[in-house]
Amino acid sequence: MATTSAERQRAYRARRPCAGENGERRLQNWVSTAAALALGRLARHARITRRAFLEKLLLDADQVTTRAMSDEVFDQYFALPRNKR
């Protein structure tokens, strides 16, 4: 018997936490239209996907932020409590 679209989607989402080098997490957020359009322009300009551009932006910002930290601040930064959705 064939699976339904909902069943295939559920199975796909169940596999994502183990995908890639370190798994993946789903983000679902609303942003302003201006921010969404800017993301699209920036990604097109860089000739990469919006996802790839956003990941690069976040990882670069994290690296810049942590590079300038003392050991104590660094430890506190990574010990932040997990956000509750």
Rank of each mutant, 00 (worst) to 15 (best):
L54V: 05
L54D: 05
L54R: 05
L54S: 07
L54E: 00
L54I: 04
L54M: 11
E55C: 08
E55W: 06
E55H: 06
E55A: 07
E55Q: 13
E55N: 13
K56T: 10
K56R: 15
K56M: 09
L57M: 14
L57E: 10
L57W: 13
L58Y: 03
L58M: 08
L58P: 04
L59N: 14
L59G: 06
L59T: 15
L59C: 13
L59M: 15
D60Y: 01
D60L: 00
D60E: 05
D60K: 01
D60P: 01
D60M: 03
D60H: 00
D60C: 01
A61N: 09
A61Y: 07
A61C: 12
A61K: 08
A61W: 05
D62L: 15
D62K: 13
D62P: 00
D62R: 14
D62E: 14
D62M: 14
Q63F: 08
Q63G: 09
Q63V: 10
V64Y: 12
V64K: 15
V64L: 15
V64S: 14
T65K: 04
T65D: 04
T65H: 05
T65P: 01
T65W: 03
T65Y: 03
T66Q: 07
T66W: 02
T66F: 02
T66L: 05
R67T: 04
R67E: 01
R67S: 07
R67L: 06
R67W: 00
A68N: 02
A68W: 01
A68S: 07
A68P: 02
A68L: 03
A68E: 00
A68Q: 02
M69H: 04
M69K: 06
M69A: 08
M69P: 05
S70V: 01
S70R: 12
S70I: 03
S70T: 15
D71N: 11
D71W: 01
D71M: 08
D71K: 10
D71G: 12
E72T: 05
E72D: 10
E72A: 10
E72P: 00
E72R: 08
E72N: 03
E72S: 08
E72K: 04
V73P: 00
V73T: 12
V73M: 09
V73R: 13
F74Y: 14
F74D: 10
F74E: 05
D75C: 09
D75G: 07
D75T: 06
D75I: 03
D75W: 06
D75M: 07
D75L: 11
Q76Y: 00
Q76R: 14
Q76L: 12
Q76K: 12
Y77G: 01
Y77N: 06
Y77S: 01
F78Y: 14
A79P: 02
A79I: 02
A79D: 02
A79R: 01
A79K: 02
A79N: 06
L80G: 08
L80H: 09
L80M: 09
L80F: 10
P81H: 10
P81E: 14
P81K: 12
R82P: 00
R82M: 06
R82E: 09
R82W: 00
N83Y: 09
N83W: 11
N83Q: 11
N83I: 12
K84E: 11
K84I: 12
K84N: 08
K84F: 04
